[in-house]
Amino acid sequence: MKIGIVVFPGTWSDRDTFYALNEVIKINSEYIWHKDQSLNNCDFIILPGGFSYGDYLRTGAIASFSPIMEKVIEFSKQGGPVLGICNGFQILCESNLLPGILIKNKNLDFICERSFLKVNNQSIYSDQYKQNEIINIPISHGEGNFQLDKYNLDKLEEEERIIFRYSSQSGDETESYNPNGSVNNIAGIVNSKGNVLGMMPHPEKASEKILGGEDGKRIFTSIIENISQNV
């Protein structure tokens, strides 16, 4: 099994993700350059965080037109698993692989902190967590405020596609534990098929004890395990 990490100009969590996979979890991953013509037979694609193309337009907007994204879209339409982290989530929304949009944080400022998330374990990315488990993963973004129209939001809720919600350490999902103003405290969602996950928090930054916790690791191991069973 092979994991591909897409590198756009301005991407920076490519190296962190690579380290978490290859050195910590000890599974092979490789970089896919944005100018590459194919996904090189990878079984799982990660769009990592950063500021693709500087994010000078809307975040993720230019990256969504990158040639490699045509391949990623094609791959996901065939059911291939795609994980978008932070800027990757923004790119997935801009590419219409996920509904909604990520706008400026409510306080209009960049936020870096360790946030608590309540997990819905009904996805191939989260089935190694307990239902409603509270996990701690860093966020680091200026535009992570997820917004969606009511119809589609209701649909997301109904289909239980909200995988991560910002909460307190004890699980309160109130506004005061919502760092960026996201509707319904949304931190991560899947598409209707469940093969595409977008999330603002950075699981690769929470994959080792020495860094303050390894709650993020199980996102990678969940999906890897699920793919291995199907490969």
Partner: peptide, 16 residues
């Protein structure tokens, strides 16, 4: 101030 700066990227930060 410091929560406006990313202090986790590169996954080396042991003490924030």
């Amino acid at each position: 101030i410091y929560q406006k700066y990313d202090h986790h990227v590169q996954t080396n930060t042991v003490i924030e």
